[in-house]
Amino acid sequence: MLDDAAAAPAFEWSYVVLAVLIPAAILVYMLGMSRAKRIGSARNLEPKGRRMPKGSLKSDPQFAGFVGRALQRGVLTPIAGAEAQPIMIRGVITSADGNLGGAPGRECVWRNRSGAPRDAAVAAELVVVADSTGRLTLENLDHAEVIAPEEKAGPRVASYGLYIGDEIEVIGRFKPERFGTDPDPTRLVYGSMGGDGNLYVRVHSRPIAPAAAETAVRAGAEALSSPPSPAQAPPESTE
């Protein structure tokens, strides 16, 4: 009997410890990966502007004073009658030499993160603005001071944007430079603004709220998968 007791193997507590630690380690790893994916997804939605030292774009006190006076007076200059001087115009963004995506006909031409300095903005190089008399081009829009509605992409992600179709007010120095061959004078370009780096842009009206690319795709899919409402359905023929 004594020999049998001596031959019995001792209980290995190390196996119990491993059985507890291994599942715990796997659980911690999975939770960490899940959190990293959520953070990464939120950052991917955030507009990625150029990373430049904060404050590298210094405001021109003289131009800032003119902006204040122009906003107070509210005097608008027709594009076709503008001269080489600081002016304030109001027109609609009609086109650009590039865009940052968006719904067709409502593409984004300027975007910046909410709370970010002007240095972080990204924009098309040339943006065309038209009023009832003619057109002009905006240069250095990525350096402009822009006032636009805030857009929420999540609980912690927000940005501002300018879109084709937005009616905007622009303050800056006009540079006459007429070109174009269209017989309609309202379709000619009469000059540019922002060439000296000073530009103020404010959204005056936005008839249709711009949709993010994923929202537009989702809305299109829903429209295709659901029957038209009575208000949208085509009228029945009485013939």
Rank of each mutant, 00 (worst) to 15 (best):
V67H: 05
C108D: 05
I79A: 09
L76A: 06
A70W: 06
G91D: 10
V92S: 00
R106D: 07
I89W: 01
A103S: 14
A96L: 08
I26A: 11
A80K: 15
N112H: 01
G32E: 06
R43N: 15
I89G: 02
S34A: 14
L71W: 00
C108Y: 04
M52Q: 14
A80P: 12
R111D: 10
A42S: 14
A25V: 10
A42P: 04
S34M: 11
R51I: 12
V92R: 06
K58S: 06
N99M: 03
P61R: 04
M30L: 15
M52C: 06
V92T: 04
L76R: 05
P78F: 01
K58L: 08
P86H: 12
S56C: 12
K54I: 05
I26V: 14
G98A: 15
A70Y: 09
C108R: 15
N44K: 14
P61S: 02
A36G: 10
R43V: 14
T94H: 01
I89D: 00
S41A: 13
I39A: 05
W110G: 03
P86Q: 08
F63H: 11
G55Q: 06
D60R: 03
G91Y: 08
K58R: 12
L71A: 00
I79E: 02
R90Y: 00
M88H: 03
P78V: 02
G102Q: 07
S41F: 06
K48F: 00
A25K: 03
R106E: 12
V75Q: 14
F63W: 11
G74H: 04
R73Q: 12
Q85I: 03
S56I: 11
W110V: 05
